[in-house]
Design a binder for these strands. Structure first.
Length: 565
RNA sequence: UGGGCCGUCGACUAAUGGUAGGUCAAGUGCCUUUGGAGCACUUUGUCUAGGUUCGAAUCCUAGCGGCCCAGCCA
């Protein structure tokens, strides 16, 4: 943290609540939060927002934050996910105080359930799942009491004990809270607390065959950890009365639940269920496909944690459900990469350039700046010779208006090289330009003309004899619609998949300094964008992912006035 | 047609009864050995109608619009 001015942080409603609580001494000056992922999938950028909130707010008030896995459903949860989640939280730059699992509390939760039965506040129900649904009523019609609702405490105790002992098959009975079947809030119509699941748990093994539901586990877990401010997303607003009901009936530490809006980003899907579907149906190569919004995916793509944190701070938090433009995320990405990524020259689609008046066997070492935004990054040598590659896009035989790059008779600057003028072109039998001939001005070495003449354009290049080959993967959004969930009748979100979301460019030519890069290193390929070496890179067979393109004024001019999809 | 929540520039978010501000996007110009970066400027907003008040984005009433809830998922 080195901001010269601690710019007054715009407040948000959660910070306000915390400050109020501190003022009234509601929790004896403590602030404690928790980040409670279910280990049933990989974390995504939406979780990053929650993480920044949970950890960030606690940090701000010298509080503590636990990482707690909400592992109450053994049928969907796996240690693979637990491991990835811990890795992702650390990668984002946060450190948890306590590491817990809801399953740590299974014994205590069971005891409390017995306590509620004894108080006449919970009962064992023999209704089937279908019957429970029927008895629950609808949004507009009240539910009706289960015939088992009036069982004696002794019978409930006996049955619950036997549920735990494994005497009944899955689905045979549940434990329910006895609240109010006529409540306008469906969550209060005798919600299920425990269900029978003869399923091995990733941590407790076969110790349990009854598992607590989210509503019965979450608030009590918060309470056990003495969490003061328990943030969750808006869809849990209707659960808050129940969250409070359990805590009150049990007379335990009163954690408070606060709901905020989940992140929605244009052109991206942030639902673990749908992300899992993309993985399972093979639309992407895995959870860490660089097109995925998972933290492992965008990490592989080349995003850095600082950019994500800055983004999360900038979008704020509220209770309105909105949709943030992807451009906002990309802005913070570029902002950070611009400061830190070393510059390098690479040609994605090579066009051969021969400098006719340059000596055949000569090679010069040109000085190139590593990062104009960071003088400390130093310089490097880049080899220059008679035959080069430039970008196909940087030459036009018939240049349109406002096109400043190379074209017949025109002079441009080769970055850190010389001024060259196009004298001639060679075409193949389909009349495509396959080779460009130029002359150079020896007086312009390094890129400056002693006579002060200006050139409209500077283009990048690599020396053909010295270049190394690479595969470069260019990405577009995974979906073609701003809201991938918006579909025509009878279709699902996969109908909005972008068939052009990945383009693998194979014959890219890179300057030789890139030869030994390690996977994960980030660079700016000058004039093109930011790129990150992929873990699939082998020496001699490098693979780069384009993290994000540079802003491209020319593309904008060429495309004309832009439209939204 | 039950209940809960939410409506501020194109997007996100401040203003906590007292000047509607910031960021992104868009546009214009400057600068530039990246058509990058940077800098400057500009456009656009309080859902509607009433009310309370010296004064309302903010409080009240009524509309309108959006999201969520009928898992033995979280």
């Amino acid at each position: 943290m080195s901001a010269p001015e601690p710019a007054p942080k715009p407040s948000n409603f959660i910070r306000d609540i915390i400050q109020d609580d501190l003022k009234t001494n509601k929790y004896a000056g403590r602030v404690q939060t928790r980040f409670p992922p279910e280990p049933n999938g990989y974390l995504h950028i939406g979780h990053a927002k929650a993480i920044c909130l949970d950890f960030g707010l606690a940090d701000e008030f010298s509080g503590k934050t636990n990482l707690r896995f909400d592992d109450t459903n053994p049928s969907k949860e796996e240690t693979e996910y637990v491991d990835s989640i811990m890795e992702d939280v650390k990668w984002l730059g946060f450190h948890w105080d306590g590491l817990f699992y809801a399953s740590d509390y299974f014994d205590q939760l069971y005891e409390w359930a017995v306590q509620l039965i004894k108080a006449g506040k919970a009962y064992v129900d023999d209704l089937s799942a279908d019957e429970i649904r029927e008895y629950r009523g609808t949004l507009t019609k009240p539910g009706k009491n289960s015939p088992y609702r009036t069982r004696s405490i002794e019978e409930n105790l006996n049955l619950f004990e036997r549920m735990k002992a494994g005497e009944f098959p899955d689905g045979a009975r549940v434990l329910r809270a006895k609240i109010d079947m006529a409540s306008p809030n469906l969550n209060m119509r005798d919600p299920v607390m425990y269900r029978i699941l003869h399923s091995e748990h990733h941590r407790t093994g076969n110790k349990w065959c009854i598992y607590p539901m989210y509503d019965y586990a979450h608030g009590q877990s918060d309470s056990l950890e003495k969490v003061t401010h328990s943030m969750c997303t808006l869809e849990f607003e209707d659960h808050r009365p129940l969250y409070n009901w359990f805590i009150q009936q049990l007379g335990i530490f009163p954690s408070q639940q606060i709901e905020f809006d989940r992140l929605n980003l244009t052109y991206t899907l942030l639902s673990k269920r749908k992300l899992l579907q993309l993985v399972e149906q093979g639309h992407v190569s895995g959870w860490d496909d660089p097109r995925m919004p998972t933290l492992s995916g965008i990490r592989r793509r080349g995003y850095n944690p600082e950019a994500i944190r800055n983004f999360c701070a900038a979008i704020g938090v509220s209770k309105t459900n909105g949709m943030i433009e992807l451009a906002m995320l990309e802005h913070f990405l570029r902002e950070d990469l611009n400061k830190h990524a070393p510059r390098v020259m690479a040609v994605l689609r090579p066009l051969k350039v021969v400098i006719d008046n340059y000596p055949e066997n000569r090679t010069e070492e040109m000085d190139a700046v590593n990062n104009p935004e960071d003088p400390g990054a130093g310089t490097r040598k880049v080899p220059f010779s008679r035959v080069l590659y430039i970008e196909q896009d940087d030459f036009r035989e018939d240049p349109p208006k406002q096109y400043y790059r190379l074209s017949p008779g025109r002079e441009v600057r080769l970055r850190y090289g010389y001024f060259i003028t196009c004298t001639n072109v060679v075409k193949n039998d389909r009349s495509e330009v396959i080779e460009v001939h130029c002359s150079y001005d020896p007086a312009t070495r390094g890129g400056n003309a002693p006579d002060g003449r200006k050139v409209k354009s500077t283009i990048h290049w690599v020396s053909a004899a010295h270049a190394i080959d690479a595969e470069v993967r260019l990405y577009d959004t995974l979906f073609t619609r701003e809201d991938p969930n918006q579909t025509e009748e009878g279709q699902d979100f996969t109908a909005n998949l972008n068939p052009k979301s990945l383009e693998a460019v194979r014959g890219a030519k890179l300057e030789p300094s890139l030869a030994g890069v390690t996977p994960g290193s980030r660079f700016q390929f000058e004039r093109l964008g930011y790129f990150c070496a992929d873990p699939e890179s082998k020496s001699g067979a490098l693979v780069f992912n384009r993290t994000v393109a540079l802003k491209d004024t020319w593309a904008k001019i060429e495309k004309g006035p832009q439209q939204k999809k």
